[in-house]
Design a protein around this nucleic acid. Structure first.
Lengths: 199, 199
DNA sequence: ACGTACCATATACAGCTGTATCATAATACG
DNA sequence: CGTATTATGATACAGCTGTATATGGTACGT
């Protein structure tokens, strides 16, 4: 056997390089050569770890989703343990909106992938829906807890509210990235929304 | 002069062909040759009417926006003249969600363009923000009228509500196109939202 | 009538793309 | 210690891309 190298780590490096290229120049500018150069390796190496471009794209998408979960878990770890529902939702919204550079990159590249997935059936269902469904459940749980504590406005449907929060934050995120709204304006809207839920 | 031909119409035909290709195979599959073939003309003709590819892309985006405005105006024309605010908002949401094929195409291609615009400054500001800002105003006006008539829930900020409606519908639209939600589920959410505004 | 301005086609070209091939370095194990 | 296995490199190739060139037709103003 040769200089045994951690494949998972190498693939992660390449996936990160892809994300950097996509965030800077757009997902359409992602080529195997561009990824290789960004990662500082030869073209052949990219071929070696991701046989084909389709697998490279898919692998990077999965990697992006993993990174995002990690980031979300880290943020949750900083909150007090029985986390107050409203603080939980605020954390989610802060994470979902492109406030800092990392979430900006995530939203930008994620949206580009989503656009791809709309016409490419190989990409579509798996990595997207799963992550969001999970988030959906977490948000609904937090809302349910708030409702049980009587902190929520009366007559709300928690599952619909969860879906509404996700859709709203996603729509706001794109509007920010497209330059239509500032981050502050978007934040004002989500605060307004939260204030309607928590009177 | 030669066989005088309506330039605007020819460009519209080509733009439509581009949109068809983008809706079927994705915006990344749009090439000058693909557009030419889809429109049933020669490659050179596409070059003739849109000198460069960048202009073709921009022209098609503008055309898409025009088509969308036209569609919106047509729908408004079918409503009674002092249109009831709630009916107005329902019309907007029905139009914004990818319910029929035309709005599906519009949302799909529009989202792909939005993803492009996030990294391509030449595409960004103009055609997007303008159309949405206009819509924003119309929605805020309708809400203002409803508020003046006392039909709205108390304590609502109409400009924020307008922005919320647009962001929500956009986020829901993408979730539908990505296969995460059905159209019916999305419709249920927007109805729920409207019911909160109009008690 | 006719040639000039416009519309359209066919084809060429250089560059980039994904993929395949050939070659080579490095190392863990028998 | 040598050899099979893994990891990297250099390069070739066919296809597609945007753009440029060269050429043909056609309707009108004069």
């Amino acid at each position: 056997m040769p200089r045994t190298v951690d494949h998972a780590e190498r693939r992660a490096q390449l996936a990160d390089a892809l994300v950097r290229v996509a965030a800077r120049d757009g997902l359409h500018a992602v080529t195997m050569r561009a990824v290789a150069e960004e990662a500082g390796v030869s073209l052949r190496l990219v071929q070696y770890y991701f046989d084909t471009k389709a697998q490279l794209m898919l692998g990077a998408l999965r990697h992006l989703e993993t990174r995002s979960r990690q980031r979300w878990a880290d943020r949750l770890a900083e909150l007090p343990d029985p986390v107050p529902p409203r603080a939980f939702l605020e954390a989610f919204l802060a994470e979902a909106l492109p406030t800092d550079d990392q979430s900006r990159v995530f939203h930008l590249v994620g949206t580009s992938y989503a656009a791809l997935a709309m016409t490419d059936p190989d990409l579509a269902t798996e990595p997207f829906t799963l992550g969001i469904d999970d988030l959906d459940r977490q948000l609904a749980d937090a809302l349910k807890r708030a409702q049980a504590d009587g902190k929520l406005a009366p007559g709300l449907d928690v599952t619909i509210e969860a879906a509404r929060l996700i859709s709203l934050s996603h729509g706001l995120g794109t509007s920010v990235l497209v330059g239509q709204r500032t981050v502050d304006a978007a934040t004002e809207i989500v605060n307004y929304h939260l204030n309607q839920l928590f009177p």
